[in-house]
Design a protein around this nucleic acid. Sequence first.
DNA 1: AAACTTCTTGATGTTTTCTTGACAGCTTAC
DNA 2: GTAAGCTGTCAAGAAAACATCAAGAAGTTT
Lengths: 229, 229
Amino acid sequence: MSAENLPRILIIDDELAIRRFLHTILSSEDFSLHEAENGHAGLAAAAAFKPDIILLDLGLPDLDGIEVIMRLREWSQVPIIVLSVREHENDKVAALNAGADDYLTKPFGVGELLARIRAALRRSLQEVPEPIYTCNGLQVDLTRRLVTIQGEEVSLTPTEYDILRLMVTHAGKVLTHSQILKQVWGIAYLEQPHVLRVNISNLRRKIESDPSRPRHIVTEPGVGYRLTL
Amino acid sequence: MSAENLPRILIIDDELAIRRFLHTILSSEDFSLHEAENGHAGLAAAAAFKPDIILLDLGLPDLDGIEVIMRLREWSQVPIIVLSVREHENDKVAALNAGADDYLTKPFGVGELLARIRAALRRSLQEVPEPIYTCNGLQVDLTRRLVTIQGEEVSLTPTEYDILRLMVTHAGKVLTHSQILKQVWGIAYLEQPHVLRVNISNLRRKIESDPSRPRHIVTEPGVGYRLTL
DNA sequence: AAACTTCTTGATGTTTTCTTGACAGCTTAC
DNA sequence: GTAAGCTGTCAAGAAAACATCAAGAAGTTT
């Protein structure tokens, strides 16, 4: 898994010792970490860093923890796990009602923290449906890898689907021969425009109602191809 | 608010006293309640009652609590809040890793319980999928692990059932070879598509009326397999 | 321990996909 | 007008992917 895909965790805590502690625990797992030492910095970091989960200490110097939660909840659904020394029930209730997802009282077990982080991540990673490209009876559902023309299912070979997916994700824009060849076949095929033509032809036969006068996959002579918007 | 739209809570606990206690607390709020006094009844009720949230006691007479969580998670994403007297960290970690959303140690405060229920409800306003897949005479009941074809029960091996369950929970979507291999056999088998083919073949022999022309498990050449919707 | 089920693995034949070459149509340049 | 270059189509052989059978290994139950 590449570094970009690691779950992102934002730690908002003013105590250096705790930040170090959390850093030690969490960096042994596969997480991408970011830290903020007060409420305002935390709110800014939440917007900039776009964490998948926030670990929030309630006792911040500049802002009340509840305030931070409420400000976050004005625009973000990111899971918030509160870490606090206050174990009075009212504090927990207030934080949870303000929009926190979980509340852990210090000192807490490392295993429990990790388990609760995983539980929160599990919930929030529930996949977001990708948009479906639709145009003139052609429909491409990228999540289901399903292509339909006039409602009828079309079966594409892996290569054909790769090309079409590339075009859908860049719908309306011209894709040069080199771009398509590089993406689908790899750099080694840069000087082989023939394979691309054959595949475009096959693709058109499958998704165009009149392959000799294509409406979806338009050729831009001398440059490449373009998928009509 | 009409009675049909109230959040539905299922309580799985063997102790009458606790059920009474929870009933008292929760019926003062706007909840629709249902109770089960052992694991099997709880699993059945989860399928029939379709709760928005489950309060689960770990110490059940017939099934281990972790087992209940895992069985539920085979087909349902419903939030599970564990209520337990065991406050050892290992118990919490095991429950959370098995798929629980929260863990409360008895005795707990009423306010905290309500707050945690609200927190769980807040983020789980999503649709619950039907636990029973039906299509062209093939029926898969994930809650009972029961597969029937034209009403007749089919006996599957554990591996075959795992594959089918994976496909049912992603019905309509293409599952790549790697996805299936990773989920069913583990990462070590990623480069062994042969075992998958053998098992798909066996599965088809059992659930397809004409295995050579499959209607349910469609192969997407070069990619994987897909369960017809 | 025997009987049974399930899993794994190898061998073999089939199907699908990929690559490549031949050729024809079209456009542009001269 | 014609040559050159780009483009589209068809078809055949090669390569890869797939399905199925069957036998032995491993694990379970009786």
